Simulated scan of single mutants.
Amino acid sequence: MAKSDPNWSDVDDYIVEHLIGDDPVLDACLAANAREGLPAIDVSSAQGRMLELLARGVRAKYILEIGTLGGYSAISLARALPDDGHLVSLELEPQYAALARTNIERAGLSDKVEIIVGEAISSLAALEESDRPRFDFIFVDADKENYAAYLDHAIRLSRPGAMLVFDNVVREGEVIDPDSSDPKVPGTRALYAALQKHPKVDATAIQTVGSKKWDGFLLGIVRDD
């Protein structure tokens, strides 16, 4: 694994200071997550704002998130929604979902966010069979082993022109190593392979460095032709 550079976090702090500022709601969310022993794998403050701006940019009204954890990214995304917007977030662990609901309620966003507990694959299949509106924006940040399967569901659940965002797709450079010891690399590589020359999605990936070390996001747009 590549070593982290302390300057990366310093630059993140600079970005937050100049472009985002203090956010007591998200700070409280992180503090609650830490008290309850959740893994500290939330997106960073700058990344959370990026997700919010991307969702605002596509004028998302219906958002799907795969992987709630303690609700940090759900809060960021829900802030992008119009008054009649709705976010569905899928979470495997009941205790994570319960804490996320508390954090989201504290943020004043309970009326916009629905958390569904259970295996994501089963929840996604149920969403496909429902009469819910198709989603405008989908953020995937759950078990990387199932990334390619999540892509298939995401496409079926999206409207044409929807944005898809997958987190943790560089893995400190390990993604280019087919023999990597990181157990999450094969699923990440399967996502790239599935999107190579995909007929329904135009995609790219961007490397990032910062307080979350060296990683990246994959972004795609569901084609409308």
Rank of each mutant, 00 (worst) to 15 (best):
K3I: 14
Q207H: 12
E172P: 04
P82K: 05
P94V: 05
V11H: 12
K3W: 15
L53H: 06
G220A: 06
P94L: 05
L53R: 09
E145S: 11
T68D: 03
Q47G: 12
E174I: 05
P133M: 03
M163F: 13
D5G: 07
N103H: 01
E65L: 10
N7S: 11
K112G: 00
A32Y: 01
D5L: 05
S73R: 07
V165A: 14
I20A: 02
M1N: 08
A31E: 11
L219T: 13
R134Q: 14
I221M: 15
D12P: 03
A32G: 09
E114D: 08
P199A: 07
E129H: 15
D10P: 05
L30M: 10
V11I: 15
E129T: 12
N33L: 01
P94E: 12
E105N: 09
I63M: 04
L69C: 09
D111R: 15
D136I: 05
N146V: 03
S45I: 10
S123Q: 10
S44T: 11
S181P: 05
Y150Q: 10
I104G: 06
L157E: 09
S4Y: 02
M163S: 07
A2D: 13
R132E: 08
D12E: 12
S123Y: 01
V222I: 14
A31H: 10
L54F: 15
S122N: 12
V58Q: 13
R106T: 14
R106Q: 12
R134W: 05
D136V: 03
I155G: 04
P24A: 00
A100Y: 00
I115Y: 01
I20T: 09
F135N: 10
R101E: 14
V201S: 08
D12L: 01
S180L: 03
G108E: 15
H198E: 06
R223D: 10
T204L: 11
Y192E: 02
A46C: 03
D143E: 11
V222W: 02
I221T: 15
E129C: 13
R106L: 09
